[in-house]
Amino acid sequence: MADDEIILSELDDEELVAQMFDDLYDGLKEEIEEGVNILLERGWTPYDILTKALVGGMTVVGADFRDGILFVPEVLLAANAMKGGMHILKPLLAETGAPRVGKMVIGTVKGDIHDIGKNLVSMMMEGAGFEVVDIGINNAVEKYLEALETEKPDILGMSALLTTTMPYMKVVIDTMKEKGIRDDFIVLVGGAPLNEEFGRAIGADAYCRDAAVAVETAKTLVARKHNQPAAH
């Protein structure tokens, strides 16, 4: 018998949230699900659990990834654990009318099937209160335009892992310009081989180096957009 086994239900709220931070960091999905259920039983709102326990924990993971303390496998495990918690909270969030910050359409560009980064961004954006419409991988410009037309988001997010596919982001942005709709949307781009210079060169509003930066950038740019005076 392990003497040091932690019984989550015996922890007070503060200790439990701290333990959930640790469990997220260690990628322990079942423990996260248990923690979420305990907090729900204690009367926490789904929104508070999401922001204070899950997003708070993932923010630590994101910071340590950025600092080179954690690597991709550990981040994926943490994300998987958070996903377990989100799965419980998502229907409840819809019922309880959690605040909605904005809407994003996100997808990986044509020729590229890598979606780990995109999925992390989607999850963290949802955690931050954005409605996310994920159009998946290998998206041609027509697919992006269709999603923009149908979903009318605030933000378009494009992702690429390959240096051979990242130039396609410019194709999408140039087509948006041709159609006169470029300025109707905030365009965020990301992916391992990108950088700020590339983001500027292709005409995106911002390059986001990781999911946490994507969330902060999205919040800032959406707030700025909403504060803009109507066109005159």
């Binding site: 990628g27 690597f71 991709v72 496998p73 550990e74 994926l76 495990l77 998987n80 780990i116």
Partner: peptide, 14 residues
């Protein structure tokens, strides 16, 4: 490098 020796369950995510 992908951590599959320690976490084979990540395979399909990659």
């Amino acid at each position: 490098p992908l951590g599959l020796d320690r976490h084979p369950e990540l395979r399909d995510m990659y």
